[in-house]
Simulated scan of single mutants.
Amino acid sequence: LKLPIFYGISNANLLRGAGTMKADQKMGQGNYALAGHHMNNPNILFSPLAKAKVGELVYLTDGKKVYTYRLFKRKTINKDQIQVIDDIPNQKLLTLITCDPIPGVARTPLRILLQGQLQQIAKLNQQTRKLFE
């Protein structure tokens, strides 16, 4: 899954990549929360998250550094459980959210939630850049 990250969760942003869920959030700090669309095609946008597993690594870059998170939580939540994107004192988290499709239901109230904990921050160089090519 390789997507650009846009500021905000407008439909225009979510049709092109992931969107930040909070104003002024920064990679590697607090609870960095991203949302993305789950599509019928299992290989585009946030659809591959349906197959993500606890223990997998997620890599993000801001063009200067690479932030590595290890997934530790996967669960289904209701769309109204917005507290999952709140910062937690002394924790550096990544929260990924996408729709949890229900066959035959156009607008599902369920969401797939994946959370990871920051493992490492490294400078973006020739070797780490390969993760994003």
Rank of each mutant, 00 (worst) to 15 (best):
K123Q: 07
G19S: 13
Y67A: 00
I121Y: 00
K123H: 05
Q117Y: 03
L124S: 08
K51G: 01
G19H: 07
G116M: 00
N43F: 06
A50H: 08
K2P: 02
L96I: 01
G116L: 03
L57Q: 05
F6Y: 15
K26L: 09
V58F: 01
Q81F: 14
R74Q: 04
R107N: 10
T95K: 11
D87L: 02
T68P: 01
N125A: 06
K73N: 03
Q119S: 00
L71I: 01
T61E: 09
A18L: 15
F6G: 11
M27V: 01
A23Q: 09
K64C: 02
G36V: 06
P4K: 14
L118V: 01
L15R: 14
A50V: 09
A52D: 00
N43K: 13
I88R: 08
V66E: 04
P103K: 14
N125D: 14
E56F: 00
N31E: 05
A50T: 10
Q81L: 11
R107I: 06
R107T: 01
T20M: 11
N125E: 10
G55P: 11
K65E: 02
K64A: 09
L1H: 12
I82P: 08
K92L: 09
N90L: 06
G30Q: 08
K26E: 07
I9P: 12
L3M: 11
I121N: 00
P101M: 11
S10H: 05
L118R: 02
V54G: 13
I102R: 13
E133L: 08
K53D: 02
Y59C: 07
K92T: 05
R74A: 01
L118T: 03
M27C: 00
